[in-house]
Every structure is written in C-alpha cells, then in structure tokens.
Amino acid sequence: MTTFTQTLFNGLALGSVYALIALGFTLAYKASGAINFAHGSLLLLGGYLVAIWHEPLGFYLALAAAAAGTGAAAMLEALLLRKVRRTGSTVPTILTIGVDILLLTELARRIGGDVLTAGDPWGSRIREFAGITVAEARIYSLLVSVLLVAVFLAAFHRTRWGLAMRATAIDREAAELMGVRSDRLWMSAWALAGVLAAVAAVFLIAFPAPGLDRNTGHIALAAFPAAVLGGLGSVGGALLGSLVIGMAEAAAAGYQQQLSSFGSGIADIAPFVVMVLVLIARPQGLLGSKESNRV
C-alpha cells in the first residue's frame, strides 16, 4: 500500500513538472506549428540563470529575472521562426534544432562539469504523511504547477488575450480580420512558454535532484510524448498527458521488480510505450479533436 501511495505522489509531482514543460511546448506549437526541439535548452537556460543569479539577487528575484530572460530567449527564437513561417511546419521545426545546437553548446560550455544549485528556500527538508516521505520542494512544485496552470487556463478561457489565442489557433486569417494582432500573440505565447520552462527548471534542480548539470534539459524529451498523447495543440490534453506520463514513469520505477520480465530499464521507455498504445486507440490523442475535412 505504501508503495502505491508513494508511487501515486511521485507520479503526481513528476506529472506536474511535465505539465509546465508540455504546456510551453503546446503553446509554441499552437503559435508556430513547429515542434520546438530547443525547449530542453530553454529549460536549461532558465535553470542556469537562476543558478548564477540567486547569490547576488536572492532566490525569488533571480527566479523572476531568469523567467524574464528565458522568455526573452524564447521570443528571439520565435522571431527567427517567423521568417520561415510561409514554408509550412517542417522547416521551422528543423530551425529549432539549429537554435538548440547553438544554445546547448554555449550553456554546456559554461556549465562544464559543475553541478549548480538553485538556492531555493526549501533546501533538503522533507515531510512525512500517510506513511510516505516527500521532499518539501516536490510539494511546492505540485502546488505551484497547479496554480500556474489554473491561472493560465483562466486567462485562456476568460480574457481577451485567451480569446484571441483560441481564435488565431482556429483560423489565423479570420482572427486577423477581426483585429487580432497575430504577431504579438505569437510572441506572447512563446514568451509564456519560456517562463514556464524556467519555473519547471527550478523544480527539476531542487532537492531531491542534486542540482543543475548540462544534461538537465534532456527531461524535455519526456514532455514530447505527454503533449502528443494528450492531443497536440490541446491545452487540456497536454495537462492530462503529462499526468499520464508522470504516473506511468513513477509506476515503472516503483514496481520495477514486478516488471523485470520486460528487461531492465523499463521506466526509460514507459512514456513512449504508453504514447504508442494511446495513439493506436485514438490517433488524434486523448483530447485532440479529430480533423474534419471540408470539401
């Protein structure tokens, strides 16, 4: 039973961080129709900025500055992508690979072999309840993620900005005719994706993780299947998908003894196995809408 509760919480905590990444990923996809391969590097950038600024600025100010910095970097990337907008979605996708190479090389060179800490206020404190042990940072990551996602959803569904976003996603031209400035929207979506990545980075490098190293950005790969199995471009889908992937990964790690007949290291591929199974049953993802064709 304890294993179950522990796995459940681990899955929730992991899923909530994935949600921040997958949400940013989905926003970027909605805005530019491209898979952002540089998302992991943006995440690494956010974590790196917090790590080098928390000493002079204090943690919260550093986080704010890092979020702004990562948002700005994401906007720069969006500017580049805008130049090749007319060529469909494949060219921008490859362009993000180029951006990723540049950003990752620079960050990896700066980080070197170091393990940097975020200087977060939770330290290595832990809480115990219901027979399970949980790092305090994980509880905050769950709370902050839920809060951020709730704020985002409210803005997406209740504000003019959200309305414009949804309208542009359905039909850019029509939305522009209605007075939506799609360029600005495009940029704001990317900036938001960058900010979310920076916040996710902080929780990824806080205890019980050891800190930020050059490989921290790899985690963004697990958010790809989260976004796709939920339904690419669906915000609710990204959230649901993140939860499913987080749970699957936690379960594969928590019950690895029982799963050993599938070979060792099954947790590594759990997200992808789940994704394939979901896509076979529902090719448009869990919450994605089936494309209808007008003739």
């Binding site: 898979i35 690419l232 099954i266 394939v276 090719p283 448009q284 993802g285």
Partner: peptide
C-alpha cells in the same frame, strides 16, 4: 499525420534502444 507521426515515431528510437 505530419507532426503527430513525427513525435509518435520518437517512441521507435527509445523502444529500439531498449
């Protein structure tokens, strides 16, 4: 189709490694 297939095929790489 398109991007969906792109990300779905990511699974092949990782399952293949396994």
């Amino acid at each position: 189709r398109g991007m969906y297939l792109g990300v779905a095929t990511l699974a092949l790489v990782f399952i293949g490694q396994h």
